[in-house]
Design a protein around this nucleic acid. Structure first.
Lengths: 222, 222
DNA sequence: AAAACCGTTAAGAATTGGTTAAGATATTAT
DNA sequence: ATAATATCTTAACCAATTCTTAACGGTTTT
């Protein structure tokens, strides 16, 4: 569950935001002054901060300087462009002028959160209980990591990119020809066999089925 | 010099943008249709794309689906919120409605570019007890500074930029080829060896693990 | 029935990773 | 400029892993 912090001295706006964001499934913390926010942030790290600029105590600009590693969306009544420019250059992730449409704010929040997640997560292909992470180059099956060789990994990745579709033997050979130039249909046979063996050892299932004369594919078999 | 691509069929806007961005020191490429943009992108990779939605040929939305790894700022006459929401969720980095203020656009461009750079650059990279300062060019481990050679530093930096992710040997070689043009996989082997030795001398841990046939990565090993 | 294809097994060949040491190159100090 | 130092590359070796080849039996197509 993502944690969002609201920093705004306007009680009405603050509560409205909290209600709506809670509805959306976020864990919300509210602060009504810069110093209050500062205090909270010294001990916690939310995933995103909604920050009003006109704050009693520590100003929003000052607070922003101190925030590192958490995306900040600035909410402000100041509509003039000079401020926008300064803020965006100053490190704000995004900017919205009051009054704003709640739906747009939600969308922008979503963007910032997903961006942070994408940086941490990476690209993962999934097929039933198999997941293949192209960043860490690992394959996990039902929680257990499976050790695959370079070629086995390349083949499985190819199949998982087109789940349920036949991938021609020649396509596979071509695709892995950079790594293993002298791979023939004979050796491909072995790689497929080893792949099946390793997958079956992890979960007792057959995933890879052969299509006679054409190639191989992932299926939802038993 | 940062490369920006403009995709807009309105000749007036397109040229105005190009002029101003060129003034600002960007390298600008202009396209007047979706297909033209698509063609260019198949062979080039700009640092940022300004994309109009109403395009002849391939529509802006379709084009956006195909763009990966390059931030896109959408320029559109559509002002309604539903569109904004859809676009931001669909992968746009930012959104501006026409007519827009040039200064604000420049600021938002700046933000996106610096964001991409920050992801790659950063000042201090950390991984467990190792911290690498790109400003002072130093590596500190548990308080002790480690003396690394230029190449070792470059390799470690690369690995620390993607902690827990595999970095291909070829990627490493490419990345350090400026400093050491004739580095081969053989010599890379030695640099990794020396890096490991120095890190282990500082803290008794193994950080760098090999991924057979692919490359190396930082792991949370013992 | 013959030919082509798939699945399995085992063994030898080839590649890769880790290590060590020596020679080549670049950098710094004298 | 020369010497001293640091750094980088090459080579060789072993161990571990991975890849290919070959052979055999079963199945499907022609």
């Amino acid at each position: 569950m993502k944690k969002i912090m609201i920093v705004d001295d306007d009680q009405h706006i603050n509560e409205m935001l909290r209600e709506r964001l809670t509805e959306e499934g976020y864990e919300v913390t509210a602060a009504y002054s810069g110093t209050e926010a500062q205090m909270f942030l010294s001990g916690h790290k939310p995933d995103l901060i909604l920050l009003d600029l006109m704050l009693p105590g520590l100003s929003g600009e000052e607070l922003m300087m101190q925030i590192k590693g958490v995306p900040v969306i600035v909410l402000s009544a100041k509509a003039d462009i000079a401020d926008k420019v300064g803020l965006l250059r100053g490190g704000a992730a995004d900017y919205m002028t009051k009054p704003f449409a709640m739906e747009e704010l939600l969308a922008r929040i979503d963007v910032q959160l997903r961006k942070a997640e994408a940086a941490a997560d990476g690209n993962v292909l999934r097929f039933q209980e198999i997941s293949l992470d192209t960043d860490t180059h690992t394959v996990v099956c039902d929680g257990n990591e499976i050790r695959l060789t370079r070629t086995e990994y390349a083949i499985l990745k190819l199949l998982m990119q087109k789940p349920g579709q036949v991938v021609a033997k020649l396509t596979i050979l071509e695709s892995i020809s950079e790594d293993t130039p002298d791979c023939t249909e004979d050796s491909l046979k072995i790689h497929i066999h080893n792949l099946r063996r390793k997958l079956k050892a992890a979960v007792g299932k057959e995933y890879i089925s052969a299509v006679w004369g054409i190639g191989f594919m992932l299926t939802e078999a038993s």
